[in-house]
């Protein structure tokens, strides 16, 4: 067992892990963050996406021990102190149905808007191309993001 320390949602956390423990499992089972989900366990679906040092990664393909000293952000860390403009837009546009892909999509969309505050539709599709959604057909997700970028332009 190794004791590692890293920043999770702006808070320094300490946790004991074996080298073979996956970051997704450690976040969910040891650190109280249930928002990243397991969809495929191979990095194909994006449901497990979290921000590692500001960049979205597949937490199912990261060993927890790798993030020592790094910064991890999950949806819980985005939803506080209050929901972002992007999240409010997702609610207003009824962008999600079953909601299981939502944490991963919001991570990817948050990363996109940090990098590129005014993406066009093609750029939005590209940024979300690794997040599988079986319910919505993606269009209401695009619409919400486009609305946010439009409002920001004003």
């Amino acid at each position: 067992m190794a004791k590692i320390k890293f920043t999770l949602n702006d808070e320094i956390r300490t946790v004991e892990v074996e080298p073979n423990e996956i970051l997704l499992d450690v976040l969910r089972d040891k650190l109280g963050m249930k928002s990243p989900k397991c969809g495929c366990d191979r990095g194909d679906c994006g449901a497990c996406a979290v921000l590692l040092n500001g960049k979205s990664v597949r937490s199912c393909l990261v060993f927890a021990i790798e993030v020592e000293g790094q910064e991890v952000r999950t949806l819980e860390g985005i939803s506080q102190p209050k929901l972002t403009q992007l999240q409010e837009a997702f609610i207003e546009f009824n962008s999600f149905q079953c909601g299981y892909c939502a944490p991963g999509v919001i991570i990817s969309a948050t990363e996109l808007l940090e990098k590129n505050p005014h993406p066009n539709l093609e750029e939005i599709k590209e940024a979300l191309s690794g997040n599988l959604c079986r319910c919505t057909g993606y269009t209401p997700i695009f619409d919400a993001i486009l609305d946010v970028t439009k409002r920001r332009k004003k």
Binding site: K34, S35, T74, L75, E76, S79, L83, Q87, F90, I91, E92, N94, S95, F96, C98, G99, A102, P103, I106
Partner: peptide, 13 residues
């Protein structure tokens, strides 16, 4: 078009 009553729950995590 009403806003989904489970929308906030799903979007906030």
């Amino acid at each position: 078009k009403e806003i989904r009553i489970d929308g906030r729950e799903k979007v906030s995590g």
